[in-house]
Nucleic acid binder design. Structure first.
Length: 276
DNA sequence: ATCTATGCCTGGTGGC
DNA sequence: TGCCACCAGGCATAGA
């Protein structure tokens, strides 16, 4: 599933193909991906040019002339560039025809992804974007503000790390890896953590995310960042998906549990809950 | 105000 | 082999 490093990779890859291109036409075999009314979406976006692509958390922000296209890939969303419309897959739901005759195609097996077109400058008024916390890899993030949110949360630390209003960009994979590196049990109650522990969590998250970005993201399950390019961070995973394998630190078998309804991998020896 | 449960979706898997 | 229940999960929303 695309998290911050994967979305960053998609952004950088797409920039090479899209900047300077205008949208000639929109084809939407499954228009429910688009939140707006399809006809007005088309009216507004046709003729607009891709000027830049930004990322905020796991959101892609396609900068057009008068609008911003806000896109979230959710679980399995991918963008492809195609040269023709031959042999469209049944999972390609929104296709933009470009000036150069090529196509930007949005592919999403689960149809969870979303697209929304808003006037330039109003994108941060969207409910979804306005509530996001600091970027999970932002070295200038105010740790005091983040710690304050942990201190008030009577929820498992994993749930808080996944809460995009606390910090944004982490998903299930990188949260498991961050907790492992910090030697904290995912079910530990967030408010029980010290300032230093929260500080270490944020520092480790940043380290992991930046390494993952450098390696082009993580490819697990069916996820590829875009254009069929695989990331390489999956080779760096310590616990996520590795149930039954030895912990790279102490060789204890990695276990899988559920936290907040999410599959969670950890080393039961390295990541112990605090004594009460 | 906080937190949890549910719905959105489909492909893959395991049981029979 | 085929059928079916079940699981994966980010986020919005409803409900406790």
């Amino acid at each position: 599933m695309p998290e911050l490093p994967e979305v960053e990779t998609v952004k950088e890859t797409l920039k090479n193909f899209l900047i300077g291109q205008k949208i000639r036409k929109v084809i939407a075999p499954y228009p429910n991906i688009i939140k707006d009314d399809l006809d007005s979406f088309k009216d507004k976006i046709i003729g607009q040019q891709f000027n830049d692509i930004l990322r905020y958390g796991k959101y892609l922000l396609f900068q057009l002339d008068d609008y911003v296209l806000v896109s979230h890939l959710r679980m399995e969303g991918k963008y492809f560039i195609r040269n023709s419309l031959k042999e469209l897959s049944k999972h390609e739901h929104v296709i933009f025809e470009l000036d150069n005759g090529k196509f930007l195609s949005y592919h999403d097996v689960r149809k969870f992804g979303t697209m929304e077109l808003v006037f330039k400058g109003t994108e941060f008024q969207l409910e979804s974007l306005s509530k996001l916390g600091f970027e999970a890899n932002d070295e200038n993030a105010d740790i005091n503000i983040i710690y304050e949110k942990f201190r008030k949360a009577n929820r498992p630390v994993k749930t808080v790390l996944l809460d995009q209003t606390v910090i944004t960009g982490l998903g299930n994979i990188y949260v498991d890896e961050t907790l492992f590196l910090t030697k904290i049990h995912p079910q530990e109650i967030a408010s029980h953590l010290s300032f230093d522990e929260v500080s270490n969590l944020i520092k480790n998250a940043r380290t992991i995310l930046n390494k993952a970005i450098a390696l082009g993201g993580t490819t697990i399950r069916t996820y590829q960042s875009s254009l069929g390019v695989d990331g390489r961070f999956q080779n760096e995973l310590n616990v996520h998906t590795l149930v039954g394998k030895p912990c790279p630190v102490c060789s204890t078998e990695i276990i899988k549990i559920k936290v907040g309804g999410r599959g969670t991998y950890l080393c039961p020896n390295c990541q112990k809950r605090k004594e009460l």
